[in-house]
Design a binder for these strands. Structure first.
Lengths: 234, 234
DNA sequence: GTCTATAAAGTGATAGAC
DNA sequence: GTCTATCACTTTATAGAC
């Protein structure tokens, strides 16, 4: 903390965090050992336990470092939109923008490259036993409920469960896109191009906005099961 | 193999596979040890190595057991659709149906509950270092390219990279929905309801069909970057 | 705050008796 | 085909010297 006594104390802690972030992004939280981290950070094996108490403590730090800021910025952006527009519904595209734009703010705060940062975010939000610290989970659930209300307001007449499921599908598209964008490169044989971050965000918003508000013109046909379109001899 | 000598030989192998499938579905491929599997299967610790050569061998078996059938049925369904419709484009909804319907066929072949089966599929298709056996990967890439062509044909005027990215977003929605449907329950506080499998498929197809064909009426505005909609003081 | 040494438990895998 | 016993290795974590 003190800038006088030399940076080496805080520097090691910082190097550990950054090394962990890169490794977690690349390999996933499960496949990285404490030794991988300390080696990459050029620190001693015991450093992680000294600075963070345990491996789990370091994971918690890495999780909290970006999830909370992202979720809080999401809420702030949604607040600003709703304040600006008065009592009317905020258009779906604007709500989606508020949902993903914070990533571009936070990527600049990090020491990571864009690619690694987004992989890391995808892994965080995609993790199941995400075991978020209570404070982080609280903000997370709060944020989700606020957005559910905003989406519901933007799509009047749609039932709550339909809104939740569309949010789930939307989140899946986001998470998978972030965590596995390089897989697309591989499977498409390069035909997916090299889009800028802004292009990718745009594609995401257009795709999911259409999905979210689909059926709005024909609410009665909206969410009935379709059933098999084609019978098939299996 | 011989039904005479008693089923215990084949039974153990089968029990190991089923135990592995349930554990992999629940915890993910990385977090399950050989001992977890043999214990759950009521088999000896050495059984996995005897029957499958290694842990990795068992993982490969589990992966291949469903991925190949799913991908081959996808191709067969797409073939049938294209044969039926002649040279014209198959509508996006029908292509999507061919893409997801095979899961309902294969879930019946498995010994798993619907919930576990879909979690397992989500984990398989979501895995990064998916390390598919060569044969499986070949079918997989072949399948993807055929569907890319079908989608491109259904959405004339859309550039190849745009089609690939929409497929990626669509696949993300599918994978995340399958692997983490229970998370939705938790975060929505139960407000996401208890839909049937058919309802969930219907929701998926409607959502992604709208996303896939979005901008079709206004091709020129189609995929330009939108840029920030709202400036925000961060 | 950093290091070495080491503990304690878990990992996948195998040899050899039955 | 199944079992026990065990190997060789890795994992997280800690005690204690510096």
């Amino acid at each position: 903390m003190s800038a006088v006594a030399g940076d080496s104390k805080v520097a090691t802690k910082q190097r550990l965090i950054e090394a962990a972030e890169e490794l977690f992004a690349d390999e996933g939280f499960d496949r990285v050992s404490v030794r991988d981290i300390t080696t990459k950070a050029g620190a001693n094996v015991a450093a992680v336990n000294y600075h963070f108490g345990s491996r789990e403590g370091l994971v918690a730090i890495v999780l909290a470092r970006y999830i909370n800021p992202v979720n809080e910025e999401r809420l702030a952006r949604l607040d600003a939109l709703e304040r600006k527009i008065g009592g009317k519904p905020v258009p779906v595209e604007e709500v989606l923008e508020a949902f993903v734009r914070p990533f571009t703010t936070q990527v600049r705060r990090s020491e990571l490259t864009e690619k690694l940062f987004f992989k890391l975010m995808g892994r965080m939000f995609g993790q199941e036993g995400c075991n978020l610290p209570p404070v982080v989970e609280t903000v997370f659930v709060n944020m989700l409920n606020r957005f559910q209300k905003a989406f519901a307001k933007a799509m009047p007449g749609l039932a709550a469960d339909d809104v939740w499921w569309r949010i789930h599908l939307m989140a899946g598209a986001m998470i998978h896109t972030m965590a596995h964008a390089d897989t697309l490169q591989r499977f498409s044989g390069g035909d997916s191009g090299s889009p800028t971050l802004e292009q990718t965000l745009s594609r995401f918003i257009r795709f999911t906005a259409a999905g979210m508000r689909q059926g709005a013109d024909d609410p009665h046909e909206g969410e009935k099961p379709r059933g098999p379109q084609v019978e098939f001899p299996f």
